[in-house]
Nucleic acid binder design. Structure first.
Lengths: 148, 148
DNA sequence: CTATATGGTCAAGCTGCTTGACCATCACGT
DNA sequence: ACGTGATGGTCAAGCAGCTTGACCATATAG
């Protein structure tokens, strides 16, 4: 593998990721959820199952807990999440999605599915499955880095 | 394709892109080029062939020309690029990479090749080729968006 | 030759993040 | 039980990267 081929692959991967991010963001806005940036999506993904603390979010996003707390403030202010008392730790606050937050999460899923469907039209369904398997095997485990 | 599968694919793609960005950045730093952020890499890619104007860069990066100009200032100050008179337009200034800028570009290519080599070890060389072709076909053409 | 568009710069302001300090609560060792 | 350090969270100040707005110099069209 020559360096130029590696760069072509890297550029394509970055362009595809950037394009997908853009598509999802557009789709979410088109479904009526405004004032959100892509970074919020990564937060939603962490909150989705059962909620999380601000510090959990900070680790997941790779930012300070202050920054995570500000992000939560914003999501609360806009009605996507709310803070509850933590059932096991009186210091902590459990951040959970509101109904609107869940609706927004579903909107993001739909937008993603829409983009992926177009890939299916270009590559074929089977190839998209292959692509998913390949990406799952090379994707790192660590915290999602929401910015370049 | 269910939404959950689309999300799994999206998450894997974003994680792979984020991981690759991180790897390249680390590799560039390890080779002695400091004070650079991933966004600079996208600028380098545009400057590499024959140079570009600040406005060209702005369009390519999807930012204002003022922001692009500041980025150029920074690259000039750190010795990676220099401004020259534009051969055909007295208003414009042609921004070109210095020898150090080219060395940094090669370092980024090496770091990318290193990461891709690891993917080859996991997926096999043939599968990596397939991956590259697939990504090239779904990657959008537009301006590279250096931030999420 | 005027009029408008374009490349670039200067200046001010905003936003999202950081560092640093601090308080409340938890968990451990004695 | 109690002191001590670790941990979750907040408040405050500062900074970096970007934006908008105004402006000048040069190019291009009518």
């Amino acid at each position: 593998m020559q360096n130029s081929e590696a760069m072509a692959l890297s550029a394509a991967l970055l362009a595809a990721a950037g394009g997908l991010t853009h598509r999802i963001h557009e789709g979410v806005v088109a479904r009526g959820f405004e004032g959100l940036r892509p970074a919020h999506g990564f937060a939603f993904a962490r909150l989705a199952p059962d909620g999380a603390t601000a510090t959990d979010l900070a680790v997941h996003l790779g930012v300070t807990k202050q920054a995570a707390s500000q992000l939560v403030d914003e999501m609360v202010r806009k009605g996507y999440a709310e803070r509850r008392a933590h059932p096991e730790d009186a210091r902590a606050r459990l951040v959970v999605l509101t109904a609107r937050g869940w609706a927004c999460t579903r909107a993001a899923e739909e937008a993603a599915a829409e983009a992926v469907r177009e890939w299916g039209a270009v590559l074929g369904e089977g190839e998209v499955r292959v692509l998913r398997e390949q990406l799952l095997r090379i994707a790192p485990q660590g915290p999602v880095r929401p910015s370049w």
